[in-house]
């Protein structure tokens, strides 16, 4: 493995991520105007959306890597899938916490069983279980295969959950009326972009999403490199013990 080349690329990526993060912080705190109703606390929304975006992208990357692994069981796909789910789960957690902090002033509660939050909960549980599955399999090749199948089924689950929460609240207003209200609340954040100071906010949001995408890429490569190092240590240990 030409690790020096890989290292150099990662270093560049890391510094790019740091730079975009600084720009993003400056934009969010200095350039973006304060929201008229909620004030400064609304600024967390930029990070919330960025993190949620990364979560979605990461799970999609994991899905693609899973499918590729089943077609050709190359260990690198398994590593990408693992790294993506790990990062996706962390960003999803960050998005949830950030959303919760934002939700307190917006909805006057930390948590609601709104469609979106229901979906996040299902996604979180589904992908957290991914690690339980991996942890229970010793054989590397089998672990990769099972994890790939699971990641595909998990993605289906998220799509189905999305459809369920989206379609059903329309037809059962009595049963899910509470949900519809809260969903409106969640969209408030975006609706407010559309009037008044919209342009500046949308620019900030886009910068935030770009920044988080760079951050995700950097994390992904760092995580892959870590996995390579991990594997070479294991291989060295094996050689030592076989002596």
């Amino acid at each position: 493995m030409n690790s020096t080349k890989l290292d150099r690329r990662i270093t560049i990526l890391n510094w790019t991520a740091v730079a975009t993060m600084i720009i993003n912080l400056a934009v969010v705190f200095l350039y973006a105007p304060p929201e008229k109703l909620m004030g400064n606390v609304q600024r967390i929304f930029y990070f919330h959306v960025g993190a949620a975006w990364v979560g979605a992208v990461a799970f999609f990357v994991a899905l693609v890597a899973g499918i590729l692994y089943l077609r050709k069981p190359d260990r690198k796909y398994d590593t990408i899938a693992l790294a993506s789910v790990e990062i996706g789960l962390i960003f999803l957690s960050m998005a949830t916490v950030a959303g919760s902090v934002w939700g307190k002033p917006a909805w006057n509660t930390w948590w609601l069983w709104s469609p979106r939050l229901t979906m996040i909960t299902v996604a979180w549980l589904t992908y957290a279980a991914y690690f339980m599955l991996r942890g229970a399999i010793e054989d590397e090749e089998k672990r990769g295969r099972f994890a790939a199948v699971y990641v595909i089924v998990a993605f289906l689950t998220i799509i189905l959950t999305f459809l369920s929460v989206r379609l059903m609240r329309d037809i059962h207003p009595v049963l899910v009326g509470g949900m519809a209200d809260s969903a409106k609340g969640a969209e408030q954040g975006l609706q407010e972009f559309e009037d008044g100071l919209a342009t500046k906010m949308i620019i900030s949001l886009n910068i935030s999403v770009i920044n988080f995408s760079v951050l995700f890429t950097a994390w992904l490569f760092n995580r892959i490199r870590l996995q390579h190092l991990n594997e070479s240590v294991t291989a060295l240990k094996m050689r030592l013990s076989n002596r």
Binding site: V122, T126, Y150
Partner: peptide, 15 residues
């Protein structure tokens, strides 16, 4: 392991 893996996957069905 089965309930931990399967029950989250069946949530979009239960709903």
């Amino acid at each position: 392991l089965l309930p931990v893996l399967l029950l989250p996957l069946s949530l979009p069905l239960v709903l």
